[in-house]
Design a protein around this nucleic acid. Structure first.
Lengths: 226, 226
DNA sequence: TTTGACAACGAACAGATGTTCCGATTATAC
DNA sequence: GTATAATCGGAACATCTGTTCGTTGTCAAA
């Protein structure tokens, strides 16, 4: 496109809020392209679509759009563009619900497809997406885990894993007792493990590492009352 | 050792429609990542998130997911992934966050505008929007409310109101003691009120209706651990 | 005319990212 | 067991793709 060859491109650029026609077209193209492909265009895609002959010019305009708050960009991220919408719909991350958690029955198997479609919304600001890997939701039945401050009916979020760090609240099977429990994991010297209730007024349980089969780590609790 | 007591994830793979747990987790990660960033993860992002040690393995699983029709991929396109599933992006209700809740200080005033723009996401399926009228979020400080199964750091959702029904867990001020407490409301004959801890192993408090200044009803608890 | 902001161009660079190939390992079927 | 398919690992490779830098062109205001 020969600059100035047509006279349609005229406006006051003194207003720091406004954008040029080219920038508006760029924004609209990004929106359309994203809609059509489900991923954003690359800088070169934009260059070709708008008949621009250098990537740097596209980058320049993208900078302007970002400075105006109309666009978000991931740094050095391929196709990391997203158009900022006026109503930023806050989406709730979902985790799969696997069933119930009780003292007497094994943890539901994530492989089990019987409730494969059931999901639970979790608060995204408390549980950002990157912390939800391998996390599943379970509904607690019974008050056996009351000393972990978890009551009957609570939804607990558990990351399925076989290891734990000191201080984690773990979901574990006591092999000998064949019981499932929810306690704070406090390994001690000599292979002993102290299982400390979250409610510090209650007594800890001492067992051995061999008797402890760690199945997961609790990452959150959701409770509705009243 | 008892077979199956130490569950290692196994399933039948003869069904060409089904996917493995790995693949399902990959799909869920892509979905969450895309939701959070507004663009898809790279193969290396996926590798790191799932604890896989090679990009080729990620590509292999992506091929499977694409063959199952669960994923679309742009060829040789950076972050060119899009999940096909019709997960209808669930909106997260927001409640205003007013401050902290402790035994010794009054409830924050909703009129106070000091944190007027701070909000907390709540799970919409547990707390539908119509139940969130006059509900505000408070962060608990201290373990004074441990007998209501609420710990330091928990986010509690409280509906501000001056009345309560039997069985509600209320936020109330004890006038004479000038303390704030979180207990189950159990009015009894003759103007007495029994305040029952949610943890039934603990002793109730008996007081009078005159001494009780109901400020709100707890409708939920959100807790992050680990 | 001069000046400065805005816009445009081209080339090269560096980093991000998908792809491919080959071998090793593990689970499931027979 | 043995065979087969599924899964995993490492490394190199080829491209995408964003970034940077210097230069040039346009236009409105002083």
């Amino acid at each position: 496109m020969i600059p100035g060859s047509d006279q349609r491109r005229r406006r006051s650029r003194r207003n720091p809020e406004s954008i040029s026609l080219r920038q508006r077209e760029m924004l609209e193209f990004i929106e359309r392209y994203s809609q059509a492909h489900q991923y954003a265009p690359s800088i070169r895609d934009i260059r070709d679509a708008l008949g621009i002959s250098s990537t740097s010019l596209v980058a320049y305009h993208l900078d302007v759009l970002e400075a105006r708050g109309l666009l978000r960009r991931g740094e050095r991220t391929s196709r990391g563009l997203s158009v900022v919408t006026t109503t930023p719909a806050i989406h709730a991350p979902q985790v799969r619900w696997l069933g119930t958690l009780t003292a007497g029955t094994p943890l539901p198997d994530p492989e089990d497809t019987s409730h494969s479609d059931t999901t639970v919304s979790v608060p995204g600001d408390l549980f950002p997406a990157e912390r939800l890997q391998s996390v599943y939701a379970l509904t607690v039945r019974g008050n056996s885990m009351i000393d972990a401050l978890v009551a009957d009916g609570d939804t607990v979020l558990v990351r399925y894993q076989q290891t734990a760090d000191r201080g984690d609240i773990i979901v574990a099977r006591l092999r000998h007792e064949n019981a499932y429990t929810l306690k704070r994991y406090e390994p001690e010297a000599g292979g002993a493990v102290r299982l400390q209730p979250a409610n510090t007024t209650m007594e800890p349980i001492i067992t051995t590492a061999e008797n402890l089969d760690i199945q997961g780590v609790m990452v959150g609790v959701l409770r509705r009352t009243g």
